[in-house]
Amino acid sequence: MSDTTADDALVHGRLGDLPPEARLLLALARPRLAPAEQERIHRFLTLNGRDLDWGLLLDQAGRHGILPLIGRNLLAHRLVHAADGRTLAPYRWIYAYAYEGNRRRNHALADEYAKVIRGLNAAGLDYAIRKGPVLTEGVYVDVGLRRMGDLDVLLEPTALPEFASAVEALGYRQGHLSRNAEQVVPFDRRTQLAWKVGLPNSTLPYLKPAQRDDVEVFVLDPCFNLFQPASGIRVDPAEILAGSVDAVLFGEVSRRLDPVDQVIDVCVQLHTEATTLMYIELGKDLTILKFLDLVELLHRMSDQQSAELVKRVRRYGCKESVLYSLHHADQVFPDRVPPGLLTEFGPAGPDLLEVYGVLDGKPDRWEQSFAARLFDSRRFRMPKARSTVPGPRAVV
């Protein structure tokens, strides 16, 4: 068998001619690998493993938030071992530590966030947990696969004082972590005012120093709407909260977004971060993990929920965000997005797919293709404008 045949086994045609490290990364980015997928990857590594830039692969896996996941897949299925037992990839210990370290870290976060949920329940607050924690426990199941960060909580704005009282009793303070990571320093007045005026759909995060090797800080991120004010979309948070469903998170009775709103939330967040200057500057605008989250949620939707998704997207008026996210998820993970949804919301034109900075009031157009940007670690240098949003920058 030739190297070309092995390469063809991992081709990602919709993204064009990708380097072998990128193709391998995308092939491994699955919570579950079927036997045929395992065989294709193993054959590829047997023929090409020595020629790969493994440092680049590690960098990209970390940048895209999937290092624990690919580490588990490489080791659990013994994909880095040849038939005669020799190693096909260097740094095996890094993959083992990434998965095991993430598992322990997520358990530490779960123990702490369970206390927060108990506090919110005791206060009688109406809330819904969003994003990472729900995905880590409810979608990926194996707690070591997906890196968890802050606890995102949807509230009505009037509930913020009660929320603040409940979490401050647990040691949380609104601010940023000090240089020595031992205390929370209040944000300056300029930052507080900028968020209150310019970002009324959320408030600055609440932090609690963790003082652990695996967790530097615990972060609570309350918000009051799924949509950015600049988007022009107005949906009463009470409507979203009324549709939330019971859940058990971190062993505690809780509430989360219903499956349809959860997909919409992931799409809106993905579109916002992919096109907002602050996230572009952080290099967190495009990550494989975000697209993987979306296709995994879509995989779990029933036909009835898919039909409801179409209706609800139209009612909320968020078609552009959903189409943007579905289109690109289909590029990253071919055939994982139901074609009916793409047809329902499409087609996606260049003004939607190539323009960024709209929510910043500084619209511009990408010169690079999506595929090139997805794996370009220096794309943060490309935008002509800079973000003016003060405050936290990737605290977890």
Rank of each mutant, 00 (worst) to 15 (best):
V245K: 04
L207W: 12
L204R: 03
I240W: 00
L249M: 04
Q228V: 11
D246A: 13
K196Q: 15
V253P: 11
L226V: 04
L193P: 07
V217H: 08
R234Q: 05
P237V: 10
Q183V: 12
P229H: 08
P209I: 06
E239F: 03
K208P: 09
V235G: 01
T191Y: 06
D214E: 15
N225F: 00
V197L: 15
V217Y: 09
F227E: 05
V245Q: 09
R179E: 15
D214N: 12
A210I: 09
N180M: 14
N180H: 15
F227I: 06
E252C: 03
E252P: 03
C223E: 14
P222Q: 02
G232V: 06
V248L: 10
A238I: 00
C223W: 01
V235W: 07
L220Q: 05
G251K: 07
V197R: 11
L204H: 07
V248R: 13
V248G: 11
P200D: 12
N201G: 08
A238C: 00
D214L: 15
E182A: 12
S244D: 05
T191M: 04
K208N: 13
F187M: 05
A242L: 04
F227Q: 03
G251M: 04
K196P: 05
D214S: 07
G243E: 13
A242E: 10
V245S: 01
P200E: 09
Y206G: 02
D214F: 10
R234I: 02
R234K: 03
L207M: 13
V245A: 03
F218K: 03
A210D: 10
V235R: 11
S231L: 01
R189T: 14
S231K: 01
R234D: 06
V184K: 09
L220I: 07
A230D: 11
V248C: 11
L177M: 13
P209D: 08
Q211L: 13
F218T: 00
L204Q: 05
V248F: 01
S231Y: 01
Q211T: 06
Y206Q: 02
Q183L: 13
E239D: 12
N225D: 15
A238K: 05
L207Q: 12
L249S: 05
V197S: 08
Q192L: 09
P237H: 05
G232E: 05
P229A: 09
L241A: 01
Q183H: 14
R212Q: 14
D236A: 04
V245L: 06
P200A: 10
A181F: 14
P205Y: 07
S202L: 11
P229I: 08
V219N: 08
P229T: 11
S244V: 02
